[in-house]
Design a protein around this nucleic acid. Structure first.
Lengths: 161, 161
DNA sequence: TCTCCTTATCTTGATGTCGAGATAATGTAT
DNA sequence: ATACATTATCTCGACATCAAGATAAGGAGA
């Protein structure tokens, strides 16, 4: 009897006409996501980062050398609004972790690149991050992880196209 | 090859020293959560609500008659900071969906209660909400849903205590 | 009753996000 | 070339959230 069970049970009493099967699944996905977020935020904070900053730095890092992307490319990769990305770049630039560089091919645009400091930081942070993630799945067997991945993929196909 | 695969593959190329197994799982949980949120928000918006307002109204509704809870009880149920709850109650009160009532047993506190309008609205909204949720799981068999729930519960136990 | 600790809620300032509109450069068709 | 639509980014205002401190009432003990 976890918290999601408690909620669906309350609905069962108050609104017996509703089928709350899906609510049980989606509620658990939500709580799991929030639990993961909480723990991962702690790791980010150890490096002076938050999820937004980590997201941008990690996207640049895994894009490979020369570790530069346009704001538009970052927008697509991170799925945030344009004003949000402007703000994120501003803050990372103020931290000295990225810099805006001229884009020789299109002067409407520019390139956001990791500074040396940014590169060093994200490399350390991502190492710690994957360790945190591994810890969050400790206790699930290899088979369970595989089955979980398969079901998550299926659910994503249904919900996300 | 979905977007999560793309990301883990990029890391595999850039940082072959990292084990990104857990990232695949957690990344899918995150994307699934976001996909669910997107769709559910649309339903909320049809009733002039957002997730924050729905959350409070639904908590009051499923608590049963007389559909009142203290801000503190709402805090515990919704896991937000106290200032957040103050703000939510203020906005819902401005919308005429809840009202602050005196708490005869403790005058530090008061009770937040659904207005008639709030009750009517949340009853309609939650009906639509469970339909949306059911649609988000369409295409998963009963067995898959059961297996998914079991794995989500296990993952929650590991990550959330 | 007086003091002090605790509990319950609110206030304030900083941050992050979105969405719509503004600005500026590019591309295209005539 | 010139006009016009498109693309890329930024600006701005509205919100939601949190964390820390403020305010106010309850409760316990001397």
């Amino acid at each position: 009897m976890d918290h999601v069970d408690f909620i669906t049970q309350q609905w069962g009493r108050e609104r017996p006409d509703l089928d709350v099967t899906a609510m049980g699944v989606i509620g658990r996905v939500a709580r799991l996501y929030l639990a993961y977020q909480r723990e991962m935020h702690k790791t980010f904070a150890e490096f002076g980062l938050n999820a937004a900053k980590f997201d941008v730095l990690a996207t640049l890092r895994r894009s490979g050398a020369p570790y530069t992307l346009s704001p538009g490319a970052l927008l697509k990769a991170t799925m945030v609004a344009s004003g949000t990305m402007t703000n994120r770049i501003d803050r990372l630039e103020a931290d000295g972790l990225v810099k805006r560089e001229v884009n020789p091919e299109d002067s409407r645009s520019f390139l956001v690149g990791l500074t040396e400091e940014g590169f060093t930081l994200i490399d350390k942070a991502v190492t710690a991050h994957v360790e945190t993630q591994a810890r969050l799945l400790e206790g699930m067997s290899r088979q369970e992880v595989e089955g979980f991945t398969a079901l998550l993929s299926k659910a994503l196909t249904v919900a996300d196209g």
